[in-house]
């Protein structure tokens, strides 16, 4: 499960920025290409594709700063795409 989330997130980021090489612990906000529009897309991606609703108090930069951080967040707040609806 965790592997799937990591792979999906990595693919989402590199799909938008093919010119970068990304490792899972890299701070993506430090790479210089993340503007607020992409930050919002990342949140939308996590919510829609990975099937979790991020509670307002978890909507913080550090939770979206790397592939590892996002995977940890998904683990914490939801069970991912295979979870039953509701």
């Amino acid at each position: 499960m965790a592997q799937d989330v990591r792979a999906e997130v990595r693919q989402f980021i590199t799909g938008r920025f093919p010119q970068i090489t990304l490792d899972d612990d890299q701070d993506i906000f430090a790479l210089g290409f993340v503007n607020s529009l992409f930050a919002m897309e990342l949140v939308m991606f996590v919510e829609q594709r990975l099937g979790v609703r991020v509670p307002n108090d978890e909507l913080r930069r550090e939770n979206f700063s790397s592939v590892t951080a996002i995977a940890a967040l998904v683990d914490r707040v939801g069970t991912g795409t295979e979870a039953p609806a509701g």
Binding site: F12, G15, R16, M40, E41, M44, F45, Q48, R49
Partner: peptide, 8 residues
């Protein structure tokens, strides 16, 4: 020009 799957 780009795709926005799962995005806004």
């Amino acid at each position: 020009f780009y795709t926005y799957d799962g995005a806004a």
